[in-house]
């Protein structure tokens, strides 16, 4: 063996591109705070392009589990893998920039205009102002907002429904493969909520995102989820398709179906 020659990276003769994986795997994942177990053990895999709804009462561990995905917290036992990479070893800033994150109300920066809020992730990624302006217009149109009319307004000058649309647009800005949504439509009235849900469904189907959607609303869960995971005291008590959810006689499911 010729040990003298330097090791080179082989130039590949193949043209097949690496498939874009955006799956999320929880492997024996647990999270404890001050000795108290809040979540886990979780063992679940979310596949590329799938929408999984985390359903459960408040305090059941849905949001904590969501925050484990973009590394806002790290598991205290087991691991979380996002697109094949463990969150406890990855560069968290990069990971978070590759994931869209939509949360209730507070998510928009109050001192920035709608356009600035929408383009913020692109600004963090160091994109040019021309690209940002073009992309911001596209994104606002995607969520049915008039960029000319609303682009220069501040979030507090918008209606609740408009704010949530801006939140979704911002999360989609860098075209992330994964979208995390924490009760994004929780703070708007019922009629607006219904419209937003339908639009969200069309949008995520069209863009083929891997989505985790947290809610405590059963009808929202059955409308949006390819699969529904029912959280019960920090663990997943049930996971299955809409049809399986309707038929299941597990107590954690029947309790939600017939409150």
């Amino acid at each position: 063996m010729d040990v003298g020659s330097p090791a080179l990276f082989p130039s590949s003769p193949h043209t097949t591109t690496v498939p874009v994986v955006s799956e999320i795997k929880f492997k024996n994942t647990g999270y404890s705070l001050e000795g108290k177990r809040l979540v886990g053990p979780l063992n679940v895999e979310i596949e590329t392009g799938e929408t999984v709804v985390f359903l459960g009462a408040s305090g059941s561990g849905k949001t904590t589990t969501l925050r484990l995905v973009n590394g806002l917290i790290l598991p205290t036992s087991g691991k979380v893998e996002v697109s094949g990479v463990r969150t406890d070893v990855v560069n968290l800033v990069e990971l978070r920039r590759s994931i869209g994150y939509v949360i209730q109300e507070v998510g928009l920066l109050p001192h920035m205009t709608v356009a600035q809020n929408t383009g913020l992730v692109l600004r963090l990624l160091g994109r040019g102002s021309e690209e940002m302006a073009r992309r911001t217009g596209e994104l606002l149109q995607m969520v049915h907002l008039d960029a000319d009319e609303l682009g220069n307004r501040l979030p507090h000058q918008l209606s609740g429904g408009q704010r949530q649309r801006v939140g979704v647009a911002r999360a989609l800005a860098a075209d992330p493969a994964i979208l995390l949504c924490d009760e994004p439509f929780g703070a708007v009235d019922a009629a607006t909520r219904g419209a937003l849900q339908i639009e969200f469904l069309e949008l995520t189907r069209e863009l083929r995102k891997t989505v985790i959607f947290v809610t405590h609303d059963v009808s929202e869960a059955t409308l949006l989820g390819d699969r529904i995971a029912v959280f019960d005291e920090g663990t997943i008590g049930f996971i299955g398709t809409r049809a399986e959810f309707e038929k299941s006689d597990k107590s954690c499911v029947t309790r939600l179906r017939n409150p």
Partner: peptide, 11 residues
């Protein structure tokens, strides 16, 4: 919440 939203988008 606002701080977490900002960190969550990769700041």
């Amino acid at each position: 919440g606002l701080r977490e939203a900002a960190l969550g988008m990769g700041m």
